[in-house]
Nucleic acid binder design. Structure first.
Lengths: 209, 209
DNA sequence: TCGGCAACTGACCCGCGGGTCATTAACTAG
DNA sequence: CTAGTTAATGACCCGCGGGTCAGTTGCCGA
C-alpha cells in the first residue's frame, strides 16, 4: 500500500509497486479470486494504470514467477557449485534452504500454489517454469548425487535416475500448509528433520536388505 | 452423457448421473472453470434439475470427494488390517495402490488438484478431508511403522513422528502430472520404483552414518 | 380416464469483474 | 508562462455464468 498524493507521475517505479501489490493480493486471494481493482488499490493507483504496464492478469502472474522464484534456485545453484564439504551436507543445506525460502515463506508458497492450480491453463507458464527452474534444479541434484556416489558417500540406485524424488516430501509439506494448516498446523521443523533423515538413511534397519 | 427421451422422471438415478457428469466436467475444466450448464448437459438434464439435487457448485464437489476418494483409503485400511507378511511389503503394496488409484487415475488426480487449488476457500471441505481421510491414513502408517520397528524390520527415528512423509514423493508425482506432463511426461513406474527404494533404503551407503 | 402432485425445464435475472478509453492533469522544454 | 506530451484516472461496457422460478408435462392412484 503506497501512500502518496493522487496522480503522481512515476513511470519507473510503477511496475515494481504493482508487482508487489499483486504478490500480496494473489497470496491472500489466490489467482482466480484476485481482483485487478484490488491490486491497483494496494499499489495506490487506479485500475487503468495497471493496464498501462501489464496487458492481462496472466502476464502479471508470469512476471511474479520470473521475479520471485528464480532467485531462490539461483542461490542454490551457486551454493552447490562452490561447495567444498561432503555431498550429504550439501544436500542438507539445499533442502533446508528450500524449506526456508519456498515452504515457510508465505508469498512464495502461494506462487507455487497458483502455479499448481492454474498451471495447465497457461501452457507457456508451465513450460517456462519447467525450462528455467525445474531442469536446472534436477541437473544440480543429479550432479550432487553423482559426486556422492563417486566419493563412496552414497549408494547407487533407482533414486539416481529420478533425482527430484529427494525433494518430494517438501512438496507434500507445501501442500499441507496451503490446504490443511487451518485445521492442523504442520510442524515444519520436525517435518524437515524427518525428511532429511528419511532420504539419507531410509527406514530399513541395517541388518535388513 | 445419458441419452434418453426428454423429460423423463427418474428421481432416484439423477444424483448419481449428475455426480458422474460433474466428475468428468471438473476433470476437464477444473473447478473454477466448470459450468453447471455443462454438467447438466453431460447428465442429459436441464440446468434447473441440477439445482433440484444440489444447492451449490461447492456441494457437488464435496459429494464427489466423499463418493470417490474415501473408498480408495478404505481399501488400504482393510488391506493393512488383514496383512500377514512383512511390514515392508505392506508398505510397498499400499504405496503402489496409492499410485494406481490416485496418481495414475485422471479423475481422482483432478479431484486432488481441486482440493489443493480451492481447499482453503472451503474450510469445511478441507476439514472433512482431514478428518475422514488424512487422520485415518496417518494412523494406518503409524501403526505400520510401529509394527515394523517392533519386528526389527525398521529402525526407529524422526520419520516415525511424521508418518505421512513416507508418501511425500507421491504428491510430487501427482503435482508433476497435473502441471508439467504436457511439457515432459513423468515416468510413473520409474518414479514409483525410486520412491519405494528411497524410503526403504535411503541414499547413504552402508558404510556411512 | 382424469385430476393433481411433483419432477423437470430453460428463459431470465443479476452481480461481478476484466478490460477500455475519453478525459484530466502532472511534468517539461522552450 | 505556456503549450505539448503522456502518465494517470475511473466511469463505463459487456460477457459470463451461478442461481431462480413460473410454467410444463410425466406419472400414478382413484
Amino acid at each position: 500500500m503506497v501512500k502518496a498524493k493522487r496522480r503522481e507521475r512515476r513511470k519507473d517505479d510503477r511496475p515494481a509497486e504493482i508487482l508487489q501489490a499483486a504478490v500480496t493480493e494473489f497470496a491472500e486471494q489466490g489467482f482466480a479470486n484476485a481482483k485487478i481493482q484490488s491490486i491497483a488499490t494496494r499499489a495506490g493507483v487506479a485500475k487503468g494504470t495497471v493496464y498501462l504496464y501489464f496487458t492481462t492478469k496472466e502476464e502479471i502472474f508470469e512476471a511474479i514467477v520470473r521475479d520471485r522464484i528464480q532467485p531462490v534456485f539461483a542461490v542454490a545453484a551457486t551454493m552447490s557449485q562452490q561447495w567444498q564439504g561432503s555431498q550429504a551436507d550439501l544436500l542438507r543445506r539445499i533442502i533446508t534452504h528450500f524449506y526456508g525460502q519456498m515452504i515457510e515463506n508465505d508469498e512464495r508458497r502461494m506462487i507455487l500454489k497458483t502455479l499448481i492450480s492454474e498451471g495447465e491453463r497457461f501452457g507457456e507458464l508451465a513450460a517456462f517454469y519447467h525450462r528455467e527452474i525445474l531442469v536446472g534444479a534436477r541437473k544440480m541434484l543429479r550432479e550432487l548425487i553423482r559426486k556422492g556416489i563417486e566419493a563412496g558417500e552414497f549408494r547407487d540406485g533407482a533414486y539416481a535416475k529420478e533425482p527430484m524424488i529427494l525433494v518430494g516430501p517438501a512438496i507434500f509439506a507445501a501442500i499441507w500448509k496451503m490446504t490443511f494448516d487451518s485445521v492442523e498446523k504442520l510442524n515444519t521443523k520436525r517435518w524437515l528433520a524427518a525428511h532429511l533423515e528419511l532420504i539419507l538413511q531410509g527406514v530399513l534397519s541395517k541388518s535388513s536388505s
